[in-house]
Amino acid sequence: MTFLQSIVPSLARPAQPAKVETDARVRPAFNLREDEHGYSLTVFLPGVPKENLEVTDHDGLLTVTGRRAWAQPKEWTALYRETSRAHFELVLRHEGDIDLEKINAELKDGRLHLLLPKAEAARPRKIAIN
């Protein structure tokens, strides 16, 4: 079995629970800027109201999930479409240098603005030399 496992690594992995997420997700357009104080993240989430927005941080992965609130009414016929119905999902990996308590999030007109201050320990410090 160990030889087989070395060829097919997935056999060595523990069985995953059958958690299947089949709904389509698209990565939203976003801007990320960094300075010495922290990160500034702007995510474009058209059609996502505040109550459908979720920002989570787990295992060094910051996830922004937004669900569109609007659904096409039954009587409407689509003549031409460029948008998708898929939900938005943006996953960013960080090195645990963010002060999670001080994250500031603001959603306005479909634009989410997140200010992620760096933790004190991660900021550059000048060391005095005697």
């Binding site: 009414p73 009587e75 031409y80």
Partner: peptide
């Protein structure tokens, strides 16, 4: 920017 067109009666 993306645009959709719909119609109803």
């Amino acid at each position: 920017f993306p645009v959709d067109l719909y119609e109803d009666k």
